[in-house]
Design a protein around this nucleic acid. Structure first.
Length: 203
DNA sequence: CAAATGATTCGCT
DNA sequence: GCGAATCATTTGG
């Protein structure tokens, strides 16, 4: 399928967020392809968004990728243990991005399972199967996304996103997760997910 | 099942 | 020093 180009990412963040649903995230690593369909995302709307790392024009080494060109990765470390993967949107200087929150495995399922649990499929319990990639930290673990992929160009050939097969779904909007400090911005409906998809982190 | 709690490191003040 | 765009585990109904 066709790889998304710079023009796809260099647009209004809310539109990019919604259009990323149903697309397929691909990571080529160790001569292998791991891929999964995007089923849940959140938009972070730049310096005016109290929930965004770039709020108030904050510009530190960590946040810097958000200010960069559209179509690059912003990967940050959180809660002492997990990574979160974002796609940078809009032109250079405009610090907006889309957080990828949940996936649905397509290729490299065994590899994802090993990355997450260091086990084989038949040794997983029901809870582990359900929790393979249904959250932003979990999916980074499964897809081998870490700090080394921060600022990676998604228009390159290591980590990228391609068109999906199926666009026959309904998009639901909801409040974003884990941003209780964001005052009125915590109620904005800037989380989007595929209605009825079992991998969505919070319905 | 749901709710509560503890984990563990980095980035910034 | 403190808080974080989270998750696994434990506890209780």
């Amino acid at each position: 399928m066709k790889k998304l180009n710079r023009n796809f990412y260099n647009r209004d963040t809310l539109i990019v967020a919604k259009e990323l649903l149903g697309k397929v995230l691909v990571h080529e690593v160790n001569g292998m392809r791991i891929s999964a369909r995007i089923v849940e995302v959140e938009a972070y709307m730049g310096t005016a968004d109290k929930a965004a790392h770039s709020y108030g024009g904050k510009r530190t080494p960590r946040v810097e990728p958000m200010y960069g060109m559209a179509g690059f990765a912003y990967v940050y470390f959180i809660y002492g243990m997990y990574y979160c993967f974002n796609v940078v949107t809009q032109e250079e200087g405009r610090a907006e991005a889309v957080l990828i929150r949940a996936l649905e495995p397509i290729e490299g399922l065994d590899s994802m399972i090993y990355n997450r649990f260091k086990k084989k499929y038949e040794d997983l319990n029901r809870y582990q199967i359900k929790n393979l990639v249904n959250g932003p930290g979990k999916l980074c673990n499964a897809m081998l996304i870490d700090k080394t992929l921060n600022k990676e160009d998604l228009c390159g050939n290591r980590l990228y996103i391609v068109e999906g097969e199926d666009s026959n779904f309904t998009i639901k909007s909801a409040k974003r997760v884990g941003i209780d400090y964001a005052e009125e911005a915590k109620d904005y409906l800037w989380r989007f997910y595929i209605e009825g998809n079992p991998n969505v982190s919070i319905k």
